[in-house]
Write a protein that binds this DNA or RNA. Sequence first.
DNA 1: AGTGAAACGACCGTAGA
DNA 2: TCTACGGTCGTTTCACT
Lengths: 159, 159
Amino acid sequence: MNSLGKSIAKPVQLDAVSKAIIEQLQTDGRRSYAEIGKAVGLSEAAVRQRVQKLTESGVMQVVAVTDPMQLGFYRQAMIGVRVSGDTTLVAEALGALDAVDYVVLTAGSFDILAEVVCENDDDLIDLLNKQIRAIEGVQSTETFVYLKLFKQLYNWGTR
Amino acid sequence: MNSLGKSIAKPVQLDAVSKAIIEQLQTDGRRSYAEIGKAVGLSEAAVRQRVQKLTESGVMQVVAVTDPMQLGFYRQAMIGVRVSGDTTLVAEALGALDAVDYVVLTAGSFDILAEVVCENDDDLIDLLNKQIRAIEGVQSTETFVYLKLFKQLYNWGTR
DNA sequence: AGTGAAACGACCGTAGA
DNA sequence: TCTACGGTCGTTTCACT
């Protein structure tokens, strides 16, 4: 159990060594346990045990991350969505779209924020008009086209 | 070179096998090359070569991702920021804050979108009043508190 | 939780199709 | 770009602290 709004787990208190291990894996998720052990001052077996615990408890996961630009998706945007009716249904419908890589229910002047990845502006227009605005309950959208990414750390909440 | 707005690389055309390899690593970034090879029908060495190419070319990277909720950060939000003056300077200042995990320059009614991670509402209030609104050039902010995360795929653009 | 040792499996470089 | 193969290094299990 994790993810926003679900049963609140008590925070795992990480010591400096576990933090160092996570840092190592944030730099390179395929670094060997032995190598990490050298860096953090622990035996290979101990590192492996800690990584297993961190993974099984849901504190951390090691995954592949792709660069949309390199794959030809030159246009990214955040879409603010205002919904009439059940926001959950709209969020699910948005999440079902391939071009949508991020969906979160929010409190504020938008009910949902959705990040989208498109090849070009034409695709973005089509996505908005033919797919997103066609979803039952979508009242209005506001688009924030990405110009330049400055910082990105990897967190996760769904699983 | 990658990242939004930087020199546009021609998209790498991935065949079905490379896509399958990435899919394997998206499920578990520490899966062995041999195991991936069995799954996609390739030798261990061939998988290794492809993963190396994908990584070196910047199409993919394998990294650790952490769950803010499990670490005691119960409050996440997206902050829309309106700036007077140079948006770049403000984006850098925002990126320098620990609580900020995502900063992107946008076109639209916000100049910057920044995602923040806090332990609780009091921290979020302090972050807004004492840190974000104190940045030179920040004209106004609008906060979208996260209620529930529905979908999250991992892309990256900075490096 | 941690170490150390031995068996096993993964990884890496190189050769060759 | 792939397979094949051998040397090296990492991982796993287990007994022990």
